[in-house]
Structures are given as C-alpha cells and as structure tokens.
Amino acid sequence: MNLLLGQILNGIATGMLYALMGLGLSLITGVLNIPNFAHGALFAVGAYLLVSVVGVLGNFWLGLIVAPIGVALLGLVIEWAGVRRLYAAGHDYQLLFTFGLALILNELIIVIWGPVGISHLPPALLRGGVDLGFTFYPKYRLFVMGMAGALVVLTWLFLEKTKYGAIMRAGIENKEMVSLLGIDIQMLFTVAFALGAYLAGIAGALTAPIRGLSPGMGVDMLGIAFVVVALGGLGNLLGAIAAGLLIGVAQAVVAAYWTEASTAVIFAVMAAVLLVRPQGLFGIR
C-alpha cells in the first residue's frame, strides 16, 4: 500500500513535467498548426542552459529564471527565421523542418557541451528528503511538483483571464476571425511559439537535477509530449494537463508491479483511450 501511495505521488511529480511539456506543444500545435518535432530538443537546451548559467552565476535560482528565457528567445528566432515561412507549406515540410532543427540542436549540444552526460545536483536548500510516513521523498521532487503545478496554473490563468490569452485561444479556434478583428496574427504566432518554447525550456531546466543531462534527453520527452497532446485533444490545454497527469501516474503505478512495461503503458493508455474516444479525453472534434 505504501509502495502504491509512493508511486502515485511520484507519478504526479513526473506527470506535472509531462503536462508542462504537453501544454507547450499543445499551444504550438494548436495556434500555429504545425507538428513541432523540435520540442524535445528545446527541452534539452533548457536543461543545458541551466547548467551553464549556474556554472557562470553560481546560483540555481537565477539559472531557473534565465535558462527558459534563453529557450524562449531561441524559439523566437526559430519562428522568425524558419517556421514563419512554412505556414502555407503543408505538414510534411513543416515536419521535415522541425525534425532537421531537432537534429541540429541535438548535435550542437554535443559540440558545445560534449557527448558525455553531466550530473547536476539540486541547490543545497533542496537536497535530501522528507519522511512522509508512507515513503521517504526527495525535497527537490516536491519542489518540482509545486513549481510545475504553479506554472501550469499560471499559463492557464494567462490564457483564461487575460485579453491576450483570450485572443490566443481564439487563434486556436478560428484564425480567420482573429485576423478579421484586426489583430496581428503573425505576432500571435510568434508569441505562441516562444511561450511553448519557454514551457519546454523550463521543464528541461527543472528536470536537470533529477535525470541529469545527456544530449539525447529530449527524444523520450518528445514522444511523451505527443502522447499528451493526442490524449488531451489537439489544442485543448486543460486536456493536456489532465493527460500529462494521467500518463505520469499510470506509468508509476505500472512500474510498481511490472517495471518492464512501464514505458509501453504510456502508449497503450493512449491507444485504449483513442479507441473509445477518438477525439481524445477532452477533444470536441
């Protein structure tokens, strides 16, 4: 029983990270209508930037602020230099472009930071763990859970309660209408891509002290982010959050009893849900 509780807690922690990744990807796919295969690479860049910033400034918290902003800026550049020219090109070329971009970023990480993995410890404040009664749990993971949760809520509030957020949601629903309203849709796309990149970057930065860094670290996350989006419904932000938590917990619970299947279960859950509800958990279409 204690094991099950511990695993559920753990599932929520990883699920929050999945939700963060899925939310960013859902924003990009929803607003811009492109398959972003570079989302995993942006995640990896976030983690590596964190380590470099912490190395230079010697402060984890500054790193956690600066690194994702760096990834968002990278997102701006990518949108401005490439993605912008591909809105009319069809998904096949968008896919080729973002996949090529992922290859480039992944290899640049190896060129800049080397092929050997890097281990990064949490800040001193968050080292060690606490006894929760049913399990001993690392403080840093509790922090990640809270931080990722707060980010998810903030993004949610931004989209629901602010004017620009409302425009962005409208952009997911109906692009013609948004441009008829005289809103700079190009600007909207750029902001959405940068925001999506920011979320991937901060997910990567938060993950660095847990999983360590390796150049290929984004690949697993990419697959999971796609599952989250497909499961939650395309462009459905609430769905992405719920789907992230669902597969995080499913994975952890299965790992308690049948570790070998714990990765496959992510995809099995997706297939099962889509068989019953082809539009995803919360999709309308």
């Binding site: 204690n2 094991l3 511990g6 695993q7 753990n10 922690a13 990883t14 399990t135 001993f136 993971r141 847990i210 999983r211 360590g212 390796s214 290929g216 670290m217 697993d220 994975q251 952890a252 790992a255 308690a256 570790t259 714990s262 990765t263």
Partner: peptide, 16 residues
C-alpha cells in the same frame, strides 16, 4: 531499458 534516466519509480520500489 538502456538509456533510462527516470529512476524514481525503480528506486521507490527498491526502497519498499
């Protein structure tokens, strides 16, 4: 699996 980076699930199980 080879290349696993998320060990929390395995470690909790080991601890239990």
């Amino acid at each position: 699996p080879l290349g696993e980076r998320e060990f929390s699930n395995y470690v909790q199980k080991a601890a239990a």
